[in-house]
Write a protein that binds this DNA or RNA. Structure first.
Lengths: 337, 337
DNA sequence: CTGAAAGCGCTAACAA
DNA sequence: TTGTTAGCGCTTTCAG
């Protein structure tokens, strides 16, 4: 196995110079660097990660903790994260916690200790215990999608965005506006559902509308859940003429129910989702769009600022959302447009 | 920073014993192991990855190369991979190659050299050059979704599955069967599209049907592409009464076109997709289902067998597909059911 | 800007 | 089964 010594000999310099040249340190002549680089290329040499890491104390890796990797939102954030990390020459180590058991295990053993230089946690409000564990890592941590005291975060304004979407339905003339939400408290401790729900309530309140209990149904943030929830809503007393689903995926399920039960959209029921999921356009779904790739890449930028000492106080980056109006929403029948 | 020596002192053993106990080697008394483990827990100690790695020559990491992480298929495979890796105590390092530039960069610098103990490559037929580079890593490599000479693979039978789906349409009574496919050669060098297309052609051929050129349209494996392709198909001479889309996402786009152009499904046009994407059920799409999480976990199992010397010859694991019939397909109008 | 040499903190071989 | 000790292959002082 070719070592740094081979390269040093080949390029007629010391191993220290090889190390410096290959890491791009500025304290090397352009000419020397060129010689070292061509020697390394010639011999097919790259600095072995483990030896460098041991000597320098850095891992050149960032850990990403994600509850799911298969859901569109998470996969898309990860795309944004990965892209910027790789540009910076950092590796992305993925920690999935699909269920309670692996979550416990992850935070008990803290296998990322001394394994990563920094961490990004996706949409996962941590328990006090978990936060303490994460803090004990002693590395910069950025949260995406949730705000956590003492840490940086990148997120959207769930409350405001939801209120705005519901307000749009009110301005269309709707008075009976349903909600497809999640259990409260939500699984995994997600806080997003509650904030979006508060936005819904706030908008109704501002318009002087008192929401009836039968206007709310639990959809569990899945397509199947949205489907069932819409059935519940339609079966209630004085069913809503418009429905706000807290995620596009629940809205897809709701659309299926409406199709099955021969309700036309938006004439019988208007529907608004949340996310601008990749299929929202294909399904003509009005929805609250959030920049997802950008939240990932922005999280890395914030992280790098902390990692490289450019920033020392936690930052809270809020990225903008936008209501995208498509064909699934309109004024209730009998209203002028 | 607490070191292995601190733990050794605390537990009254040598550092070697601490190392053995913490790695779960069998050559340690249960009693000793317990003492070491509690000492480590007490002091919050885990074996630092870089030092262990340098001394042992192993990284305890597996590299995963994926062209996308945001697409459902890839995110889902990664879920399967991650889960098994973590159970085995291995880390997953993600290498995304969303564009040609990052692909080139990855295989030029081979940043995974000495960084991972093994690799999984997702759905990416590599060029000769890239294969040579990967081979030079000297670590086990498993391909998911493509078969590569000299390496193990986990995949489905694209050809057979497609032929079967088209044959189903033929048996329903369809004679004019369209195809929404991809460019040939496909972007990234994907081979899947061609194999599925061959399956389509083969099924038609077996039924004595000569496919007309206007029955084929390019959809680029995206929703928008599927939408456009379906428009093309409908505008052609003697348009098909059934359409086979090589991916569910293209089928979604096709559904949108059909909805917009007031064609009913399946009365006017039957539609069959491929993947059993998470939304296929919600959209009532008949499709070829493939086990996705399982392909990921199976790939890891194959990898572990090679990594641990249990297997030395490449294996080619083919997982089964299944045609899932839903409401988007039926006999052409005028046919008895 | 470059070189010499002393670690970085484990693991593996060997001995007991 | 456990302890002793010599590396693993760089990076980082510190000199020059």
């Amino acid at each position: 196995m070719v070592s740094i010594r081979d390269v040093a000999r080949y390029a007629n310099v010391s191993t220290a110079t090889v190390s410096r040249a290959l890491r791009g340190l500025s304290s090397v002549t352009a000419e020397t660097r060129a010689r070292v680089e061509s020697a390394a290329a010639e011999l097919g040499y790259v600095l072995p990660f483990n030896a460098s890491s041991l000597a320098s104390g850095l891992t050149n890796s960032v850990g990403v903790v994600a509850p799911f990797t298969s859901r569109w939102f998470f996969g898309t954030v990860i795309t944004g994260i990965e892209r910027v990390l790789r540009d910076e020459g950092l590796d992305l180590v993925l920690y999935g916690i699909g269920d309670a058991e692996s979550r416990t295990r992850l935070f008990e053993q803290m296998s990322m200790r001394r394994r990563v230089d920094a961490m990004i946690v996706l949409c996962l409000p941590l328990t006090k215990r978990e936060l303490a564990a994460v803090r004990s890592l002693g590395v910069p941590v950025v949260f995406v999608g949730t705000r956590v005291a003492g840490f940086s975060s990148v997120r959207i304004e769930d409350f405001t965005a939801s209120a705005h979407a519901v307000d749009y339905l009110i301005r269309l003339g709707h008075e009976r506006i349903g909600l497809i939400c999640d259990d409260d408290p939500a699984p995994f401790g997600f806080t997003t559902p509650r904030q979006r729900k508060q936005g819904y309530l706030s908008a109704l309140h501002a318009a002087g509308i008192t929401p009836l209990p039968q206007w709310q149904a639990v959809g569990g943030f899945t397509v199947a859940g949205g489907e069932a929830a819409m059935n519940t809503l339609l079966d209630g007393d004085s069913p809503p003429t418009a429905v706000f689903a807290l995620s596009d995926e629940m809205a897809y399920g709701a659309l299926r129910t409406l199709r099955r039960r021969r309700r036309t959209v938006p004439e019988d029921v208007s529907l608004v989702g949340f996310d601008n999921h990749e299929l929202a356009a294909a399904l003509d779904l009005t929805t609250v769009a959030q920049p997802v790739v950008e939240q990932g890449s922005e999280a890395v930028r914030v992280l790098l600022d902390e990692l490289r000492g450019r920033s020392t106080t936690p930052r809270d980056v809020v990225v903008p959302t936008e209501l995208v109006v498509r064909a699934s929403s309109g004024s209730p029948v009998g209203m002028p447009n």
